[in-house]
Simulated assay, not measured.
Amino acid sequence: MTVPTPPDGQQPVDRTPDDHNPWRPPPPGTPPAPWATYPTAPIPAPQSRNGMGITALVLGIVGVVLGLLIILFWLSWLPALLAMIFGFVGLSQARNGRATNKGMALAGVILGGAGLLAAAGGAVLTITAVKTVADGARAKVKEVKSSASAAEKARHLSFGESYTFENGLKVTVAEPKPYTPDDFVLGHAKGNKAVQVTVKVVNTGTARVEVETGLPEVSDAEGASAELLIDGSGRQKVITGYVLPGKEAVGKYAFSLPPDAADRIEVEFSPDAMRWKDAYWSGPTH
């Protein structure tokens, strides 16, 4: 903006107040304004991260306790493994200055290792015990089978041998002899071969024993049941009633055999078929 020139050649007077001139230097002797100071808040110290060490210690204790319980050892490996993991993390934080419970973290690692060892030991003991029990059971089964096989074998005899039943009756079947029936005969077809089977029963016990089944069963060489022969000769005798201690009873029976299957027979007999398994006598016929 142009300032008009005053008359008489006078210079224009600057009437701008001093306090409105930002570029005017300060008057001499005036000190500069001091910088303003502001209060500063204290910087908080970093918090310690002790959770990993505490967790490792607790899990380590749980792992060791479960490992010492035989029935719960299989549960101890998980807390023990976690204790070692958290313990190593806690040790790392302690080395970096972010945790102050290095001892807890180290204890968690140690207890975790102990828990894993306890779990492994429990597993070994359990496997060993199970194997021992299984081996014992197999041996027992084998023994029972062997005993049953021996008992079964003992019940198969040759003619002339004896077998003693559990009631004390000792039974012997003699070698069959040829038998000639009389004219009046039942159960004997023409052309068949007749044989006589003699069964002797001796009471070896101290009390009388009843013979419940006095009739033997006879099979021919082909395994077919032979037919009981009955005639009027009176030579046949059926064992019935009681046998006193030290006494014997003898039964005589005649059977009819087909001529093509009469060379060998098997006699099956038990003094009480409802209680005792049959014994078997076999051999050739003459």
Rank of each mutant, 00 (worst) to 15 (best):
R95H: 07
A99I: 01
A148N: 15
P79Y: 03
G112N: 12
T126D: 11
L81C: 01
F73S: 05
K102N: 02
A105E: 04
W77R: 00
V144H: 12
M104F: 08
L125K: 10
S147A: 10
A139G: 12
L116H: 02
A134V: 14
G122T: 05
F73V: 09
G103E: 11
V144K: 15
M104Q: 03
A137K: 11
L72Q: 08
I70G: 09
L117M: 09
R138K: 08
A119F: 14
G113S: 04
N96W: 08
G113A: 15
I127L: 14
A150N: 14
G90R: 03
A151N: 13
G108L: 06
F86H: 03
G122S: 04
V141F: 06
R98V: 00
V130G: 02
A119T: 13
F86V: 01
A123Y: 09
G67A: 09
A107P: 09
A123M: 07
V109N: 08
N96I: 07
P79S: 06
A137S: 07
V141P: 01
K102T: 12
M84G: 11
F86K: 02
G108C: 04
G87S: 13
G103S: 12
R95S: 04
E143I: 00
A118Q: 10
L106D: 06
I71E: 01
A148Y: 13
L81A: 09
G108S: 10
A120T: 15
Q93R: 10
K102Y: 02
L75E: 05
L91A: 06
G122N: 04
G87D: 03
K131S: 09
A129N: 01
L72T: 07
K102D: 09
V124A: 09
A134D: 13
I127E: 00
G121K: 00
A99M: 01
V89A: 13
K145G: 05
A99N: 13
T132W: 10
G67I: 02
R95A: 13
L68T: 09
F86S: 04
A114V: 15
K102G: 13
L75I: 02
G97C: 10
G90M: 02
L69H: 00
V124F: 10
T128S: 14
A118N: 08
N96A: 13
Q93P: 00
V130C: 03
Q93Y: 03
V144R: 15
V144D: 15
N96V: 08
T126L: 07
A139K: 04
A148L: 07
Q93T: 04
L78I: 11
A123R: 14
I110F: 11
R98G: 01
V109F: 11
G115E: 05
T128V: 06
W74M: 00
A99T: 11
A120G: 11
T132Y: 05
A119G: 15
L75N: 08
S146C: 03
V141W: 06
A114H: 12
A80N: 04
G122C: 08
A99W: 00
V133F: 09
G121T: 03
A83H: 06
A120N: 12
F88S: 13
L117D: 13
F73N: 05
F73R: 01
L72Y: 05
T100S: 14
T128W: 05
A151G: 12
K131W: 05
A137D: 14
L117V: 10
G113T: 01
T100E: 05
T132V: 03
G113L: 15
S92P: 01
A83M: 03
N96S: 14
L91I: 08
T128R: 10
F86D: 01
F73K: 01
R138G: 01
